[in-house]
C-alpha cells in the first residue's frame, strides 16, 4: 500500500521545480542564439533539465527509507 508520506511531498516539490524550470521566466534565459557542442542552448537546456527532473523523481521513488 502506498501511503502519502515524505515521498509525496518530495515529489510535489519536484513538480514545482519542474514547473519553474520549464516555464517563463527561467526558460527565457536560455532562449538565445547560443550553441554548446553545436546543440542549440534551448534544446539542450530543456532536455538536460528534463533528465534531471526525471532522475530526481527516480531517486525519490527508488530510495529506500531508513
Amino acid at each position: 500500500m502506498i501511503r502519502p508520506t515524505l515521498k509525496g511531498q518530495r515529489l510535489a516539490a519536484l513538480f514545482l521545480l519542474g514547473f519553474l524550470l520549464f516555464n517563463y521566466p527561467l526558460l527565457s534565459l536560455f532562449g538565445g542564439n547560443t550553441r554548446i557542442w553545436g546543440i542549440p542552448l534551448i534544446y539542450l537546456y530543456i532536455f538536460v533539465a528534463w533528465a534531471v527532473v526525471i532522475a530526481l523523481m527516480a531517486l525519490v521513488i527508488e530510495r529506500k527509507e531508513h
Partner: peptide, 9 residues
C-alpha cells in the same frame, strides 16, 4: 512529466 510527480496524490 510534471503531472507524474503529482500522481502520488
Amino acid at each position: 512529466t510534471l503531472m507524474a510527480a503529482l500522481w502520488w496524490y
